[in-house]
Write a protein that binds this DNA or RNA. Sequence first.
DNA 1: AATGAATGAGCCTTCATTCAT
DNA 2: GATGAATGAAGGCTCATTCAT
Lengths: 211, 211, 211, 211
Amino acid sequence: MASRITPSPSAVPAEASTDRRQDILNAALACAAEGGVDAVSIDGVRARCGASVGSIYHHFGNRDGIVAALFFDIFHDQSRSVQAQLDAAQGVEAGVQALVTGYLDWVVAQPERARFLFQARGAVAAGQRTPDLAEAARRRNQALVAWFEPHRQSGALRDLPCELMPSLVMGPVQSYCRAWLSERSGLGGGLPSPTTYRAELADAAWRAVTA
Amino acid sequence: MASRITPSPSAVPAEASTDRRQDILNAALACAAEGGVDAVSIDGVRARCGASVGSIYHHFGNRDGIVAALFFDIFHDQSRSVQAQLDAAQGVEAGVQALVTGYLDWVVAQPERARFLFQARGAVAAGQRTPDLAEAARRRNQALVAWFEPHRQSGALRDLPCELMPSLVMGPVQSYCRAWLSERSGLGGGLPSPTTYRAELADAAWRAVTA
Amino acid sequence: MASRITPSPSAVPAEASTDRRQDILNAALACAAEGGVDAVSIDGVRARCGASVGSIYHHFGNRDGIVAALFFDIFHDQSRSVQAQLDAAQGVEAGVQALVTGYLDWVVAQPERARFLFQARGAVAAGQRTPDLAEAARRRNQALVAWFEPHRQSGALRDLPCELMPSLVMGPVQSYCRAWLSERSGLGGGLPSPTTYRAELADAAWRAVTA
Amino acid sequence: MASRITPSPSAVPAEASTDRRQDILNAALACAAEGGVDAVSIDGVRARCGASVGSIYHHFGNRDGIVAALFFDIFHDQSRSVQAQLDAAQGVEAGVQALVTGYLDWVVAQPERARFLFQARGAVAAGQRTPDLAEAARRRNQALVAWFEPHRQSGALRDLPCELMPSLVMGPVQSYCRAWLSERSGLGGGLPSPTTYRAELADAAWRAVTA
DNA sequence: AATGAATGAGCCTTCATTCAT
DNA sequence: GATGAATGAAGGCTCATTCAT
């Protein structure tokens, strides 16, 4: 991709393979971006990052191990990002909207990672790390519910079952982002960027839960 | 695909052929239910329904042909089912809610087919029948928009961009159903049936679009 | 090995690949003769007999399937051969000696197959066809015991437990043949052919069981 | 293999090193007991005994080095054990029988090691230490022949070729022990312990060689 | 319409071995 | 003496697909 003409050994000293593990994950993401999760093959990864087959197995155990590791990395990055937005928000309405816009902004900023999250979830859920995924999802959900709880008790929010919360608040924005990401890969045309409807989607979340 | 020299279409009883075709599709669905869309292999299907490799190719041309045929069968069945609910609804609010409950009831009635729809969409979109899928999605969407249009002009609905409509109306229910279907396969516990929140989800759709 | 200069299509018309299954087994035996059972690899077999990977799997399911099939083929061939000698023998002493010489002659006549039988037994016993092996061994053993029984009751043979019979009668000849086959592969020198001690080994069997 | 610059052999406590080496051999035996000699892999051993890959190579040079070292350890242990029984025996008949019972008792006392000896012989014979094995086998054999010689000359034993001796004397007991060890791994049922037929097997050896 | 043998690319994985620290 | 990351050859297996019958 970036063909370096002047090696200049002092300029890029250890950047290339400081972290083999990270190199491999980056290569895996590149594979997935090009051909979907199924396109993450040992040989494809190897060809992209220069690691040997054995090295990949040394770090990740097997093919699914790569996909799962990448999935959790991205999943946690996303959670952190949204949580940061939520923490910065003032008031109930701003908080609910921050959940939506924080998510939306993250997706728009790194569409490839977002697409991977959608695509790989099924594979990870079906694999050996099912419990890890369940735990991660539970934690994220609980953080959300914990944030909602006081506002519900204060009467600012409707009295809705907590299992429903994620779908009501995040359903529309996820639905739109998913559709946008799907079209983006195939062709250039289609749906406008989620940013276009940033306000509308945030508003929809608020309408769904406001008392 | 196979050029027949003696067509004589009237001589052949259509029944037998139809059964074989349906057997194959049923077997494909069973494979997918057990191991995801990727688990739909020629040999897996063959083992389940007793058809020969050649027979499968005769009917569907290639592997993706099976997945696509099954996908469109289910897709249309779902569309028909939701449309019937919508047609039966009286008034704007009932109509919006019928979209949600029609979808929800269909999912609950045939969870395996619903799960297949979620799983296979990506594969079909990436395959040779991309245009067919685009056309089918366009038609379904247009029917929905056409239904909304008069009510929007009458002021009963908010003036929202039509690209946003599907996500606002169907986003929450799809989100919840998807989560429910995911958990159903792995474990016994987890999310309550969508039926439990039928009213809430229908209500959420109405809140999202009411003026 | 044998380079044919004149193809002469009429001379060897269908010999080459009339029976793919047999071709594959022959190739497998050749692999084993060269490098032991472990040297029976899909690719090695493929290279020797010209069959495709898929074809091999079509016939034998997996690598162990080839080894097992070859093992049972040879095992039964050996049993048949020894049994024929036994049937032809007149009297008790001649019968006991026929068991030994029948075995010995078979080994000397086809040392590669005999060596394969020794080498592969462990793998077959450890594999999926354990029950088949147990059954085959049981049958062979029972045939032997059934032959001995009347002579034991007539007092011509010692009253020995039937589990011991195979080891007492066949132990020495098997031990010698095994040692001979082991040396044969590595070097040229070493043990004389079992034929050299044909009489002595037959006599040893008779001494072990005679009253 | 590893050139040491500062040997100082007196400074290093030999105990630690010995333990490590023994740990590795024990782990190798455990691997073999579970899945045959082929299952003795560097990584398998490492996982069982906690030694690092490098440490294993330091002690044994390469994979075959482990198998060979273990083989010779066991081989010599067995030889020593049988020899001790032979030395303790009084007279010709007792001596011949001691060879059989010494062997039999050793096998029954350590079946896993005995099984390893059967399984690994081929691999060791085919490896780099072929001459060591040949030498060890020659020595053992010669000791046996040397013991027999005077008794043969005194007319107590038959005048048999010395290549035949091992098979005549040890064939039956080895045959039975081998069969017993094979069954032991797979199932619980099957052949009675060799101890059951201790007397019969010893007697068979005597019958085979007595004048 | 149906059958099933044959094909070969492509994938995952294991394994012995090396080497810098 | 010990450690563990890295290497790459080699092997097993799956799978979509073709084709003669």
